[in-house]
Design a binder for these strands. Structure first.
Lengths: 209, 209
DNA sequence: GTCTATACCACGATAGAC
DNA sequence: GTCTATCGTGGTATAGAC
């Protein structure tokens, strides 16, 4: 857990390169096996040190997960910022497409930090969840605001239920973590597919409707 | 679970009422805390018996999870069957809507068995995953077939990538497990929202595109 | 910052009485 | 079918030397 200030005060222990390395490896193991199944000994083993040495960098296993989830959310936030900037001046569909692509890219291009958030948040220990919930909520609120603004400007159906729409969209994107492999498929294609499905839908019923 | 026939010789121990009760309670704990974190002692406690007594009903903790996942898939399959029957004679969009609603209903109306599949399959022990993978693949293939037949009949865009489309749709629906509460929201509304989003999309861009 | 050694506990699972 | 008692293992975490 982290102490004082307001937000994400990134630990006063200096950001040693060792710490970053441990986080990355631990995140990969949490992603593959889940939080409980990835033991401290196994993590230390993968890092190449003894389990006891990990405790020089972290006070407890839970802190490891908290740091990873926090970092994952920071990546997502940065991706959203970037997309927001890049979007200015484009038409509505393109603006949304840029955000979709940014979310997916964050899921795959910044190590396991974001993906592990998707897969382990639900069953994370109480304390960890409590620490992350506000950050997560803030990110989701940004999406809600984005969709709401599109509705208000007439770019999305006026009767859109923004909440469910956002959850289905993000849920669908996050679920890709289970099957999409960026070394096989194209991230751009995936982003375009997701955008199209959300924006235009796939129905082309010749009978009408 | 249903009995003998072809597949998974489902234990010759008769289907005692006790067994069903244990499965339901264990599924709920797996859903809330994950497989590893839900210890057999905790499960036994929730059932109201001693840990050792569980082993009269199951040989190992893994068998518990396997049985739960299998039962979950059986529920999903039954839901698909039912939707398929109900769909005959309706237009394409309605046929899809019935399947969407059936999938969501199966997720929420049959205890935790289906939902736990969504949340724990990824990190389940190797042996469990291996046992369930074929069943899961078969279910997903039914959806692929459904979508493909809609494309072939001209009801879905001809250039639809059926695989990704199915995964985004199912992913979005499955992700609802994290937030949708059927005692608060309406399942019918959720199903209609998901269907609409997939079929028509939400974009109404006045600028064109 | 990493090591060896170890404390202590909860884990899954078994034995055998009732 | 459930109990009490217990086994062996591997879990997180600490102490203290280097």
């Amino acid at each position: 857990m982290t102490p004082p200030t307001t937000d994400a005060a990134p630990d006063l222990r200096t950001e040693s390169p060792g710490r970053a390395r441990i986080l990355e490896i631990a995140a990969g193991l949490f992603l593959d096996h889940g939080y409980e199944a990835a033991s401290v000994r196994r993590i230390a083993d993968a890092v190449g040190i003894q389990a006891a040495s990990l405790y020089h960098h972290f006070d407890a296993k839970e802190d490891l997960l908290t740091a990873i989830l926090r970092q994952g959310m920071a990546v997502m936030d940065a991706a959203f910022d970037e997309a927001h900037e890049a979007a200015s001046g484009h038409d509505a569909r393109t603006r949304l497409a840029l955000h979709v692509r940014a979310h997916l890219a964050a899921l795959y291009e910044n190590g396991p930090f974001t993906a592990v958030h998707v897969t382990t948040f639900r069953t994370a220990p109480e304390e960890v969840r409590a620490a992350i919930v506000p950050v997560r909520d803030a990110y989701e609120a940004r999406w809600t605001d984005l969709l709401r603004s599109l509705v208000d400007a007439g770019h999305l159906a006026a009767d859109t239920a923004v909440g469910p729409a956002r959850l289905l969209l993000l849920g669908g994107m996050n679920a890709t973590v289970g099957w999409f492999d960026p070394s096989v498929g194209s991230l751009d294609d995936l982003a375009e597919t997701a955008t199209r499905q959300f924006w235009s839908g796939l129905g082309r019923d010749p009978e009408g409707t």
